[in-house]
Design a protein around this nucleic acid. Structure first.
Lengths: 257, 257
DNA sequence: TGTACATCAGTGAACGCGCGTTCACTGATGTAC
DNA sequence: TGTACATCAGTGAACGCGCGTTCACTGATGTAC
């Protein structure tokens, strides 16, 4: 970096522009260091887990004094929140990227790709996955900021369901609606779907998501030890089978060929 | 307690018997205090979560000095292990008790009762549930002692599947077997089933268990916030619906009537 | 362009906290004869 | 039954550690005129 140059360049503009771009320089520096902080925190998280994540450790890794971090992050909980948001976004991005590679008409294929993408991301970032899908960190209450990002990955599934609902529109499959109590219960998630999508599909879509997370958590948290073979081959084979059966259960029409 | 009396009584016997019963007295005292320690630890766990569980806190609650606890428990990790084993046992007992109330022939009913029993136990003991099904405690590696107890609850499901396999024996339902890679993958869990049970049923049974834990975790860890209504009525209604659909998916024959 | 002032990043020391674990000890209880 | 000795539960102090957060400070950088 050449700290002297940029301000000189900015001065040529003058007036309000100079003030705002000058502030922009400071803001950019802040932003860069904030990113360094979250990057370091994420690295620590990846290596030692959420419980071992401390502001002091992050400061140490950065070669700063611990109190300096407080210029950027108001508290440990705020740092945790940043990491949670980033984890949700990264998971969502992985899901989107995986799903995008499959032909739009292949609904089961899109579902399988999304599932695999999520599993792959989870295996590569186990602590970040645990941070969002494991037991809640004690004493930490997730603030509203995390709600939006949390929906990013499931939105991919919702997209698949919407296309499935269209497909059903032409092929009148007899889908029995769930009982009234269940219809009432799913009201909050119902808001994310247009009326075209039948209740039964919403229920089954939600179940598909529940299963997907359940299966990944099960593998990642060690509950398939001595249940499924421990090689990646075995685990992947079983996962793919699960997802294939669940796609069928959810009601996705089989892949065209 | 009357510490003076018991030894006197024991003395009347004399010889080896006296020695072993006298040792029995000490052993019983040890056992009682060990139980007090785990009870206190469980209470702390229930209130503050696993991360906040410390030997010092337990000692404090018991009015002992922290070093005294080391006479009973060799380390914090060992205490955690005790709690994990107890939690598995308690969950298993809850599952067994719930399942036992249903007529043997009603396979779907037995599955639903087991699922409800597990959910109920989890809602009443959220931190204990999180201890066994949440993200692994950092730096803690579950020792072999926990493996046996961990199977207690799923064994209930296995029992239901065995009866289902018998029912299939008489009603030749066409169950397509899973591909070879999957058959290989399920080898470890296969050992818990007799050969009568078809591979496909093993796969689906395992999926039923995965779903059950996934659904309970999802609710307990807050991932159904803004997805399912927040009243117990809504949650129970959705859970029952899920379990009913999953029972059907697993392939349990519908309840007789 | 030059100067006085304001802003702000980073420092270093400190507060008060809780933790796991060790160790030499004391006094009560159990054991052997 | 009585006594000497061994066992063992519980004490209290200590070690060394890491944590979140606050606060007065310094010096560099940006701003206004």
């Amino acid at each position: 970096m050449h700290p002297g140059e940029v301000p000189i360049g900015e001065r040529l503009i003058g007036g309000d522009a100079a003030r705002s771009t000058a502030r922009g320089v400071r803001a950019r520096a802040r932003e860069a260091l904030l990113r360094e902080i979250t990057d370091t925190a994420r690295r620590r998280l990846a290596e030692h887990g959420a419980a071992r994540l401390s502001l002091r450790a992050v400061a140490r890794d950065l070669g700063m004094v611990s109190s300096a971090v407080y210029r950027y992050v108001p508290s440990r909980d705020a740092l945790l929140t940043l990491l949670i948001v980033e984890a949700y976004e990264a998971l969502g991005a992985a899901a989107e990227k995986a799903e995008a590679t499959v032909a739009r008409g292949d609904l089961v294929g899109r579902f399988a790709a999304t599932a695999s993408g999520i599993r792959r991301w989870a295996l590569r970032h186990p602590h970040e996955y645990a941070l969002i899908f494991g037991s809640p960190v004690p004493g930490y209450a997730a603030p509203a900021d995390t709600v939006g990002p949390a929906t990013r990955a499931p939105r991919v599934l919702i997209g698949i369901l919407l296309d499935a609902a269209e497909a059903f529109g032409s092929t009148p499959g007899p889908i029995p609606g769930p009982p009234p109590g269940v219809v009432a219960a799913i009201a909050p998630v119902r808001a994310h779907f247009p009326a075209v999508v039948p209740d039964a599909l919403v229920v089954r879509g939600l179940m598909g998501w529940t299963y997907l997370i359940g299966a990944v958590s099960s593998e990642l948290f060690g509950h398939r030890h001595d249940v499924i073979g421990s090689s990646e081959t075995d685990r992947k084979a079983f996962f793919d089978e699960e997802m294939s059966l669940i796609a069928d259960f959810v009601g996705l029409p089989p892949s065209p060929r």
